[in-house]
């Protein structure tokens, strides 16, 4: 028994060392970005793999000022938060409605939402931009929020519909017998039960919107969100890698913090794919 335990432990050490080596290779690009963000332009020209003599914090100061980082960061928060919350509100209503509405129409509408998953964004891109222009949504953050809200619908509606179907009807009926209206019952009873699925879809949509480039580029046309600002900055400060890398680090920190806080939901949300398959 003793020797058996010893064997598994030492085997665990071997596999840990192997994993560590692979993790170092994986981490290398990030490490390079971080190291070079602390170097001066001359130091990078001399060697991109050497360590800096002293950390050049001034790169960060310069980037935060040049990109108007605080404003851009707040814009990204607004678009992401607004888009996700508005979408959750309408998707949970619709998902629940579709689950409870006992008409053939409900199945047809679900199918309609579902079929949208087969259509790549690039297929509707040009027509969508024309629509947004005609509705005077282009150039505005709120316009972008509305478009995201519509584009995100299909998956949350489908997931919430499935989840709502599993809520026991007796629970709702009991509440209604006690004189609670449907709308109040939805907010008091159904919505709290939907929390896990709402959290999962929310965090995945947050990651999507936060890092999305093409749609904000088309709708806003100005470097107002973080990916757009980084793209613009890269074009402006061509070859000034010390500043570019500092910009990358600053823009990646918020999303890494978000991951550390929401890790459980993110991992569960992605893993849900395996169960579905």
């Amino acid at each position: 028994m003793k020797s058996g335990r010893h064997r598994t432990r030492s085997r665990g050490l071997g596999i840990t060392v192997v994993t560590l080596l692979i993790a170092l290779i994986f981490f290398f690009p990030v490490l390079i970005a971080v190291i070079n963000s602390f170097k001066t332009k001359g130091e990078i020209l001399a060697s991109a793999i050497a360590l800096p003599a002293a950390p050049a914090w001034e790169n960060y100061v310069a980037v935060v000022a040049a990109t108007d980082f605080l404003q851009v960061f707040l814009n990204s928060c607004l678009v992401t938060g607004g888009g996700v919350l508005l979408n959750l509100a309408i998707s949970s209503l619709a998902g629940y409605g579709l689950a409870r509405w006992r008409r053939r129409w409900a199945d047809l509408l679900t199918l309609l939402f579902l079929s949208a998953m087969f259509v790549p964004f690039h297929t509707i891109m040009i027509a969508l931009l024309t629509t947004a222009r005609n509705m005077r949504l282009t150039g505005h953050l709120w316009g972008l929020i509305l478009v995201y809200c519509g584009l995100q619908c299909p998956i949350p509606v489908f997931l919430i519909k499935g989840f709502s179907g599993s809520i026991p009807l007796e629970l709702e009926e009991a509440a209604m017998v006690d004189g609670c209206g449907i709308v109040r019952m939805f907010f008091m009873i159904v919505l709290p039960l939907l929390k896990p699925i709402l959290a999962t879809t929310a965090v995945l949509n947050v990651l999507w919107i936060w890092n999305d480039y093409l749609l904000p580029y088309l709708i806003l046309g100005k470097p107002l969100t973080i990916p757009l600002s980084q793209m613009y900055f890269y074009g402006q400060y061509n070859q000034q890698w010390h500043l570019i890398m500092a910009g990358f680090v600053v823009s990646t920190i918020p999303v890494v913090l978000f991951f550390l806080l929401m890790q459980k939901y993110i991992v569960n949300g992605i893993a849900a794919g395996a169960v579905k398959g």
Binding site: A89, I90, S91, L93, A94, Y96, G97, L98, R100, W101, L109, L112, F113, A116, V119, T123, I124, I126, A127, L128, T130, T131, M135, L146, V147, C149, G150, L151, C153, P154, V157, I182, V183, F186
Partner: peptide
């Protein structure tokens, strides 16, 4: 009628920013 009303906002967004652009494409 209430269930239908629940579905309408999402359907409106979906039709404006997905279905209509798709058919227009």
């Amino acid at each position: 009628a209430v269930y239908l009303a629940f579905i309408i906002p999402a359907l409106l967004f979906f039709c404006t920013f997905f279905l209509y652009p798709f058919i227009k494409s």
